[in-house]
Amino acid sequence: MQKIPFIQKKILLIFASLSIISSTLAQASEEVNVYSYRQAFLVEPLFDKFTEETGIKVNVIFAKKGMAERLAREGKHSPADILLTTDISRLIELHDRDLLQTYSSKTLLDAIPSQYRSKDNTWYALTTRVRNIYSAKRLGVINVNYEDLADSKYKGKICTRSGKHAYNIALVASMIATHGKAETLVWLEKFKANLARKPQGSDRGQVQAIHQKLCDISLGNSYYFGKMLADEKQKVWADGVYINFPNQSNRGAHVNISGMAMAKYAPNSESAKILMEFLVSKDAQKLYAETNMEYPVRTDVMPSALVASWGTFKADSLPLETIAKYRKEALKLIDQAKFDL
């Protein structure tokens, strides 16, 4: 007889205590929560400035693998407000899984060119980065296209990171969009045959390998060049290479983006909106450009002096959605070519 009220009491007690716990977790309105695919310390200066300007505190979790999955599992109780990614495919994945909400404002639409945001205003690019081909200075100035990576004259002279890294998958996807599956597979196989060593390490590691004369050509994102030049130890590596913008005589260099989006169930949507607007502001874009050596998505903000010194380039006009669409095909072709093995 006495048991039932006891259990009820217990349940109430549990919930009361959960509520107390949660109140410490509960998001005060002066906060915004960010799930980031970018390392926290890369975006922290930006957030510090944001907090300084608005008084809104930014909480960040950085993770690469499974972030989308986590968001999906958390569903409507997810604490996430803003999602930051480093690759178009992630944004599209979030979009396709219905994890984003639309938000648009004049500021956003004005600041960001239309090819760098989704048609339904769910995601926006913040910066662009080029998939460059680095070449050893000892080769002299060369004119190189992505297609040339399969050229047998580079046999044993190319280094790259894993074919399955998001940046390389996106590049392969753009190749599929241009040349079709069959031709891309052949390209991948020949590319693989040209490799000086098994795909490994990071983009910077490949430049180091060029410096060590292990190979002459490597794939790498644009901003790494700037960052290496700024690093005491890595400067010597970067000094030994040219940064090349491929396919300038035809479709243009493959470009990827880093972007942001608002989570579907963002609990602090007002703060989130303020953060989004802030991130495309001239100041923020400038800071982004200066510290991370990326190309600001705003046309009216110049890249850093160093990045600008590499010259202007023609970017591939292929829609970002197309790249994301061929993502899985690209991954399959990379498997098929046994690129990493």
């Binding site: 349940i11 109430l12 919930f15 716990i21 949660s22 109140s23 977790l25 109780h77 604490p79």
Partner: peptide
Amino acid sequence: DVAVYFQLIEPGLVLSGT
């Protein structure tokens, strides 16, 4: 959901988010 039913504050993700 249970918390809502008992008209308490929603505790949020007490298990997966802590």
